[in-house]
Design a protein around this nucleic acid. Sequence first.
DNA 1: AAAATATGTCAATATGGCTGACATAAATGT
DNA 2: ACATTTATGTCAGCCATATTGACATATTTT
Lengths: 184, 184
Amino acid sequence: MADINVNAKTATPVSGLAGRPAGDSAPAELTWDIIELLFFAYRDFVGDPDEVLSKLAFGRAHHRVLHFVNRNPGMKVADLLDILNITKQSLGRVLKQMVDQGYVVQKEGAQDRRQRLLYVTPKGEVLALKLAGLQTARINRAFAELGPGAHEAARRFLTAMIDIDNREGVLRLIARADRAKARS
Amino acid sequence: MADINVNAKTATPVSGLAGRPAGDSAPAELTWDIIELLFFAYRDFVGDPDEVLSKLAFGRAHHRVLHFVNRNPGMKVADLLDILNITKQSLGRVLKQMVDQGYVVQKEGAQDRRQRLLYVTPKGEVLALKLAGLQTARINRAFAELGPGAHEAARRFLTAMIDIDNREGVLRLIARADRAKARS
DNA sequence: AAAATATGTCAATATGGCTGACATAAATGT
DNA sequence: ACATTTATGTCAGCCATATTGACATATTTT
């Protein structure tokens, strides 16, 4: 899909091969390459799961819910809302579908009985792992191409791209989830 | 926005600090960290432009159109459809708004008069550069933190994440666009 | 007892995708 | 010359996912 082949022989003539002198770093230089590579990389990255999900009549919203609930068993609804950055009304519909179809369960909190803590069912975990497997395959393919150090470099780059005031929270979340899944 | 602070003191006890032994690379290991970092990094990356756009009653769809038209002046509608991976009906609505509001113009192709080649207006370019500037600021902040070599490493990683059969096309597109903008 | 919190729900609305069908103009092939 | 294909646009309707605002319920906190 999506053969990219722009061939604009336009009015504006290609006036010689202007190309910037190599190694140039003008003050307000725009990093077009990274902007566009991020766009295409992310598009393909979410494309793999999307194909599987569409067969189940699920969308990307369902994927996000399933992913984070699987990674953080027992999380509160409010936590999920914060991570996904959506309203509870939006989450409501998607979450209800996943509960109705047996991918997620909600349990009353032990300490605070107002809470509906979220867990994936075995069926939910199977799907979550399948989707993560697809994404992992792509990532590992990339790392294999790039050689050792690529994983660490990617981790550092992506971390540095996150809002500075959120960064610590994200890293904590990832570390917590690793522990949570490690014991299963 | 979005304080992340998951605090599931759940039924399932955190059984010690299980954490995987460092430097581990089990066979079917899932790269959760990259999966989640990509999610959060991309979320923040598109968040900056989104804020500006929402004030103009534009969405991410408008951003994508403006971005690629600005980068590839004189591109065909069909090229844009391929890149964005959407239907012409979807593009139609968004494109019409941008034309009506004077951000984009369409010119009849010189060789093939069926074509409606796309160009940004000066007004459109101002907006495109403003949005790209926000994203560049984030990227450069990251590179500044990470030190030399970070740009190259990021480029290599993101490139390797793109579908192999699309990769060449994407790289050509980026190179072409660099030349196209260099002469303006 | 009052207030705050966690969650859920009803209703209305917007955006940005989609499909299918059809229209027009221009280029291309026979 | 005529038929076909191509590039684009448009009408109409549908769906998924997001929004806001208002309100309900149960439970915890003060």
